[in-house]
Write a protein that binds this DNA or RNA. Structure first.
Lengths: 233, 233
DNA sequence: TGCTTGCCTTGATCCAGATCAATGCCGGGC
DNA sequence: GCCCGGCATTGATCTGGATCAAGGCAAGCA
């Protein structure tokens, strides 16, 4: 649990240019709302319109709700991430905490109006949105053209890049999300996720420690089965 | 076929604020490159890094190439659209013309450097990127959680919104893309696309005219089978 | 430290959509 | 207005992953 001041300071140091006047700084501060989400609780984004979100602590998932309780996880987010939560269109969206999390939210319209004069802030937002878009496109490729084994490989490599701890060639992961979350992110079922992980374990590509620990023993091998353009060794 | 001057004028009227000085206007103009792509030809985005693209005329597809000639169409674009083509990462990307097209391209880095002082331009880019992201997320949901019939419905409705011509409750489409393109966009095979279209025809939801013409007879019926959150009548 | 609850794993079966294989037909060229 | 090539449709079969159905086991709690 962190305070609003701490969370905003994290946000400001990352997003707001050092050159920003104190007055402008304060105006951004007025727009921010701190939401402290306990594990497994979620934020419904309904009436408030598009939101800009900054993750100060924890880990979250952005979930899209289609009909018949078919949910698709659109993205996972970790501390430091900045992203947009769309307002409901054909689907409704919610943001859930995978662990206890502290996040700052801004009404998008207000934030952009304030940032209109601050090219640095806009540029930062643009870069982050472009990054989200790149990740989303890669996910599209995985969901459209890859089989279960490849999707798992892609997922593990993406997590390795974002929260992995490397040690002499191995990469250790402490996954905050459940098998169900992984399945909902990859367009698979929990059973298939489980079976593919077991296979990777049998093939000595990964090792598991309890429910959340996974060690990538041979990241290069995993890259080879991710179905990327350039096959790795 | 249109001239560079015409294409840039279209771009400027849409993207550059009226208040922009002539000097700045000219600098943007210097960065633009006109590419005239004949139907079925494509632009490889390789050495040049991330590009910002404006479609002045025609229709294009953004294709991601994974291994083994498995291609995934990431997005379709129509006149007036502004979007980014990522530089190659795990995949390579190319932009192909569905019809004869005229597009303007800008090296992203140069463009952003120039736009750094122009909050209006940045804001416009940000809004377009956010729109691309929203569309990409909706596609993720379709690919992750919907069956073939629903994907076709979603596709037809999306096309109706972008290039449809409404006339007394019906929406006429003249699709510039082939069945193969539709399949590669929806993560299906051409055979499945064809069968689903035939089914919709049998059910009197659509009518086809030749290879490219489709009329949505009952858009609301189609919405009902798109698997959106709020089922339409 | 044992219990209990909710994940996770494993196994058996099924089916939507892929794949394989013809055939049909649109539209461009002459 | 006919011919041709490539796209589209239709049919038969196959299969990866979904679904249905038990167990196993980790983590929190008493």
């Amino acid at each position: 649990m962190i305070t609003f001041a701490q969370a905003f300071e994290l946000f400001a140091s990352r997003v707001l240019p050092a050159s920003l006047t104190d007055a402008a700084h304060l105006r951004f501060r007025t727009l921010a709302t701190l939401r402290q989400l306990a594990r497994d609780t979620s934020l419904e984004i309904a009436e408030e319109g598009q939101q800009i979100v900054f993750v100060a602590r924890g880990a979250t998932k952005l979930v899209a709700h289609a009909s018949q309780s078919r949910d698709q996880i659109v993205a996972f987010h970790f501390p430091g991430d900045v992203f947009t939560v769309p307002e409901p269109d054909n689907y409704s969206y919610s943001l859930s905490a995978l662990r206890d999390s502290d996040i700052l939210t801004f009404a998008s319209a207000d934030f952009l109006a304030l940032a209109a004069g601050e090219a640095g802030v806009l540029r930062y937002l643009l870069e982050n949105t472009t990054l989200s878009l790149r990740r989303c496109r890669e996910k599209t490729i995985a969901l459209g053209r890859k089989n279960a084994r490849e999707r798992l490989a892609v997922f593990l490599l993406a997590m390795a890049e974002r929260i992995g701890v490397e040690q002499d060639g191995r990469i250790a992961l402490d996954l905050p999300m459940s098998r169900r979350d992984i399945a909902e992110s990859l367009g698979l079922t929990i059973e298939t996720v489980s079976r593919q992980l077991t296979k990777l374990k049998d093939e000595r590509v990964i090792e598991t420690l309890g429910r959340s620990g996974i060690v990538l023993l041979k990241p290069s091998l995993l890259r080879g089965r991710a179905g990327f353009l350039r096959e790795a060794a």
